[in-house]
Structure formats: C-alpha cells, structure tokens
Amino acid sequence: MPAPLSSPRAVRLLLALALAVLTAAFWPGSVRAQEPEFFDVPWAHNQWTFGTPLDMSHLRYCVDPRDPDWEVAAAIADTIARGLLLAPQRYVVETDVAVTEDITRIYAIMLQHCDLHMGFKLIPEGYESWISLTRAYYQSQYVFVAADRSITALGDVPRTRPIGVTIGTSAHLGLLSYLRTHPDAQRWPIFPMGNDDLALEALLNGTVDVALVWAPTLWARQRAEPAYAALEAISPNPVQPVGFGVGALMLAGQSFLRSAVDEAIAALIADGTIGEILEYYGFPATARP
C-alpha cells in the first residue's frame, strides 16, 4: 500500500484543512432561507431515530462491495481522512440485494453511517438537489469489450451483430446517439443489459459480440474470475469514448466539509498519492488535477 501524504507542504495544508473541518463541525448551522419542498429530500424509514454523531474526530465514509472499485475507493478514503488528521471510520454497506438500488436509499445510509459515500460518477445534472459531490479522485471510462481477439475496434464488428449495453448509462446514450446518425440497416442491434455483469456474461456465452461496460467492472471481474481473463477492451472507434470523474457523494448541507475534502483530494492528486494507489491496484483509471 502507498504511504499517506508525507511532504511538509502538504502536511501544513492538510493541518489547516483539518482545523477548519473541526471548527466547522461546531459552528452553528445556517438557517435555510426557505425550507425545501418535501419531495426534494428523500424520506428514510425511522430517520428521526438515527441521532447525530458527536465524535468529530473521525471521517465517516461508506463503501459498497457491489461497486467494482470499492477496495480502491476505501484506500483513497483512508488517505483523505489521514490527510485531514481525522481517523478513518469505514462502513461497508452490507445487503442481500444484488442489483439496482434507488439512489434515495443512499440518504438513509448516509444519515446513519457516513459523511462520504465513495464511488459516484460526476454526471452533470445527474443528481437531486439533496446531494452534492466531491471533486473527482479518479477518472475512468466506459469500454467496449470483446472476447474475439480478431476484433480490435468496434468498427470491426459486422453491423448485423449485437452489442450488449448496460441500460441507461451515459455510454449507452452516446452509442445510441451515434447510431441515430446512420440508416437503420447500418446500426448494430443493441441488446439492453440489466447491469455490467450481465453484459459481460452475455459476451462470454456468445449472446453478444461486444459488451459496453464501465472499465472498473471489467477490472473487477477479471481480478475475481479466470473465465473473464480473455476478455479485452477494444478501441471504441468510430464511437467517441465516454468517461467520467468519480468522487464521493455527500449530503448537500455539508458544504464546508465538502470544500475541505475537495482540497484534500486536490492535494493528494497533486503529490501523486492517489495515482500511487491506482497503480498499486492496477486500476483502470487516472488521477488528474
């Protein structure tokens, strides 16, 4: 594992940030000018019983093992916490539910367990007003994946062969937008997939010739299961690649903590700490200022 921040300048910066966080934690909250309409804020079952954490010496964060990057995200969160001179307090989301959660469920998890929920794409206008996001701690992208080594680019795939695409992703929309510029006969059939795992399984069992998935999912499956080792990301040409920064989700009211975390992330990217974490895991992402 890479070491936490070590340069004197970064330490001074993060000390200042940590002080600011602690000060903010005890500062009376500002009164909202106007109470939000109820539908803007989710409702968590029994939320009035959750209480408020009194221990301000921890940075509480959540990771979800259903996210392919969760171990990487946890390492980054630990580093952010230590940079802020706070003790990292990890909450691992445990659930039997295998697929698709309404994002409002995050609200209950955060009320109870964490200030940061790691692993969310910075999609413009992609979030409700009760949510704010930190700056990105890494950048990754969607990739076209093939099992057939003779396919090196999407353009190699005959237009009659199906592509499996996880429903509703930005890459799905990007691909459909590209296809709309072509006559119907020149469009690949697109089979909607419930999630990336199903798309990759469809690729392995031959239902589709190419799968379009989030690169960290391919990384995680290849890491866990030998059967996926032969799959390869191919060139998206002629389609433009779709990528996103990934950050942590926070409740919108925690603007001061968010600013502190943002500055910590910037410092950790600038001094190469996050890049080292990504490299350690062989993770398909970059850390850019």
Binding site: D64, R66, D67, P68, V97, V99, T100, E101, D102, I103, R105, I106, G119, F120, K121, I123, E125, G126, Y127, T166, G168, T169, S170, H172, L173, N195, D196, W214, T217, L249
Partner: peptide, 11 residues
C-alpha cells in the same frame, strides 16, 4: 438522461 451515477444506484 443518463442515470448511472453509481454501480447499483441507478435512479
């Protein structure tokens, strides 16, 4: 709209 903010949190 693309609604793929998290791996399982889809919106």
């Amino acid at each position: 709209q693309p609604l793929d903010p998290g791996q399982v949190y889809t919106g």
